[in-house]
Design a protein around this nucleic acid. Structure first.
Lengths: 327, 327
DNA sequence: TTGTACGCGTTATCAT
DNA sequence: ATGATAACGCGTACAA
């Protein structure tokens, strides 16, 4: 293996100088730099990441925690994260934390050895853990979710306002009986969207009905169908449904289709996220768009700043309403 | 930082012994082992991955190359890869190689420093590169794709037979005018499926028609729609379409729906992969299932064996036909 | 602007 | 079964 010493000998300089060249240290004569670079080229020198990591005790690795890789939505966010990471010479370690078992394992691994410099959590559950005392060691940022504890910065949209906008849209279409499918076990976002839903209803002078609030415990098309069937079985069935995710909304749509209800005239459905499936479905889903890629990029940038010792503030990115054919 | 020496002192043994305990070396008296472990516990010792990596020159990191994280299909495979990796104390580095620019960057990074012990490629294009001379340095395995060059082992289904089965199914439903949507730029798999399609047709005594072969250059719903529109514009329009991916098939379905064609009686559509969207769509897609998770698991296991210096043979996993409502 | 010398934490080799 | 010691390749005071 070609090491710094070898390059140094070949270039007729000291290892220290080679190191300086490697790290773009300003105090190297251009001439010397060239000589060193030539030697590196000639010998086929390759930096040992391990040796550097040992000296600097930074790994240039970040961990991305995703709840479910199967949802294209997270793929989009991940794309933003990895792109920004790579642009800054960081690599991204992947961990899906969906199942409890995996989840525990992930965190055990995480504790046991500092294999990465920082963590980005896209998973509400993990974000909570991240804010716990034990985890404070590793710099982290929450992505997609505003952390209840203010100690770790987050990047997200304004979930409450976004939900309000969705319901306002439904209201503007003349709907008065608006139901919601939500996942309140899942961290803050569902609660915030619930609040936004209430805001909009209240603003329109509509009193909320308990039975229009369908709680499910995971983001899943099947559960969306279930919730919708219950909604449609009500004596005074809703004319519109707002779901906290596209998958849940698609479940609603599937039930509407099966019941031969016209969408959106007999049942309007609005989703959340605008993941890849939203436009794919038939009818295409009207939904609240989260700027997925940007969310990921900003999360990574925030983390980068934390790694430099800064204490960046949280960021809220703009959402938008994508009007398609389901509402 | 607590190092091996510190633990050694505390336990009254030598660093070498501590190292043995760390690595589950058999030649340590249980008694000694306990003493060392107690000391580690007491001092809060944590292994330095960097130091180990430097000594052993293995990173315990593997790189996963995926063409497109947005497709839930790859998420499923990734799930298998990461699960198996974690079970074996490896971590997974993620790289999406979709766009050309990203792609080049990825490979540059890959060449420049041995940050990982091995590579799993889920991307046909990357797999080709992997087999090139320069890349032979890093042990690799191809996942989902049988590499044209036999030098690197692969795990995949029998694409040719799977396609044949799909077309045979269509044939068994009485179809004679069967079209195919394929992506032949994309590595071997599309070519193999094309061959399987031909096999089945030939077996049924049907002569292939050039105009029933719709070539698209990416896996994308929109392109599936385009191809289908062209197919339906033919004077003798096909009664069934076989697409090399679920997304393409969904494109076909969307066009059929828009044209108010009854599915499957007027147009039958069969997809490939059985990714998460297949069951989601309405009507649910009949498709050839690839055992995604298992494919990922086996790929990782294969890589693990390569890392041990073995030369494992390639693996073919069974596919299956999932009969839903589109064909 | 460049060189010297040491240490980072681990494991492998050889000896005991 | 255990210990002493020498690397592994890099960065960084400090000195020149």
């Amino acid at each position: 293996m070609v090491a710094v010493v070898d390059v140094a000998k070949a270039a007729g300089v000291s290892p220290a100088t080679v190191s300086r060249v490697l790290n773009n240290h300003p105090l190297v004569r251009p001439e010397t730099r060239e000589r060193v670079e030539a030697a590196m080229q000639a010998l086929g020198y390759r930096l040992s990441v391990a040796a550097r990591a040992m000296r600097t005790s930074e790994t240039r690795l970040v961990l991305a925690l995703a709840p479910n890789l199967t949802r294209g939505f997270f793929g989009e966010v991940l794309r933003g994260i990895t792109k920004t990471a790579h642009e800054n010479d960081y690599e991204v370690l992947l961990c899906e934390t969906m199942g409890v078992a995996e989840h525990e394992r992930a965190f055990t691994r995480m504790l046991n050895s500092h294999r990465y410099d920082g963590v980005i959590s896209m998973s509400p559950l993990d974000t909570e853990r991240l804010t716990s005392a034990e985890m404070q060691a590793v710099p982290g940022v929450a992505c997609l979710e505003t952390a209840p504890d203010t100690s770790i910065p987050h990047v997200s949209i304004d979930d409450r306002q976004a939900a309000r906008d969705a319901v306002l849209y439904l209201l503007s279409k003349g709907h008065r009986r608006i139901a919601m499918i939500l996942t309140d076990e899942h961290g803050l976002y569902s609660k915030l969207r619930r609040a936004g839903y209430s805001d909009a209803l209240r603003g329109a002078g509509i009193t909320e009905r308990e039975d229009y609030l369908q709680h499910v415990d995971a983001i899943d098309v099947g559960l969306g169908e279930l919730a919708t069937r219950r909604l449609l079985a009500l004596d005074e069935r809703p004319t519109a449904i707002f779901a906290v995710s596209d998958e849940l909304a698609i479940g609603a749509l599937k039930v509407a289709l099966a019941a031969k209800l016209d969408v959106p005239s007999e049942l309007a459905v609005i989703g959340f996220d605008d993941g890849p499936i939203a436009a794919m479905f038939e009818p295409p889903l009207t939904t609240v768009r989260q700027p997925m890629r940007e969310l990921g990029e900003h999360a990574m940038r925030l983390l980068l700043r934390r790694l430099k010792g800064e204490e960046p503030a949280s960021i809220t990115l703009p959402h938008s309403l994508i009007e398609r054919r389901s509402a």
